[in-house]
């Protein structure tokens, strides 16, 4: 049987979800008998090829996030929003209380200890959206795995269900938003 191909990425997230994934520890070895990783911080593959499952950590904060997210949606049969940030914007979405100019001025102009104050505008930098959005605002999402971060057990439960061809579901003890 060929292995299930999984891709993962972090958009506007903290990599906490990826760290938590790795908390599977030795169970990763078992998992890897059934799955292989395509584009992911775990592999350093830069672009997503055709995959069975895409795991997205983080919300959509800038242009680059949009492009990466669309690449995943185009290539993954099943897309899963992983973690608070992907699901509702999470901590990065706390900037939605302010308009973009206020945020940037606080960070690069008026903030404490800022030297050479100016708002960066290099064309290499991805432009910021006016609000941080959950990923389901930008592409269709198939499943949600809440948590900040979701525990390794929660990852295993969802992936296990999918591997078994079942509709994924979380038992009460694995469902939390923090």
């Amino acid at each position: 049987m060929s292995k299930i191909r999984i891709a993962t990425t972090s958009l506007a997230g903290c990599f906490g979800c990826h760290m938590s994934f790795l908390d599977m520890d030795e169970r990763l070895v078992v998992l890897l008998e059934h799955v292989e990783f395509n584009r992911s911080p775990f592999t350093d593959i830069k672009h997503c090829g055709p995959c069975d499952i895409g795991l997205i950590e983080g919300g959509v904060s800038n242009v680059e996030n949009v492009h990466v997210l669309r690449e995943f949606r185009d290539n993954c049969k099943i897309l899963i929003a992983v973690g608070a940030c992907a699901i509702n914007g999470g901590v990065p979405a706390m900037r939605n209380h302010f308009n973009l100019r206020e945020c940037l001025e606080e960070a690069y102009v008026n903030g404490v200890g800022v030297e050479n104050p100016q708002i960066p505008n290099d064309v290499e930098l991805p432009l910021l959206l006016d609000k941080v959005h959950p990923i389901h605002d930008v592409v269709r999402v198939d499943y949600y795995l809440p948590g900040c971060p979701p525990s390794a057990d929660a990852f295993l439960k969802i992936l296990g269900d999918l591997l078994a061809g079942k509709e994924p579901s979380l038992p009460h003890n694995l469902l939390h938003y923090d």
């Binding site: 242009v63 973009l100 100019r101 940037l104 505008n121 064309v123 910021l128």
Partner: peptide, 13 residues
């Protein structure tokens, strides 16, 4: 949704 950022950074590339 990028308009604000375009204005702040004076970019239109």
């Amino acid at each position: 949704a990028l308009e604000e950022a375009r204005q702040i950074s004076h970019r239109d590339d």
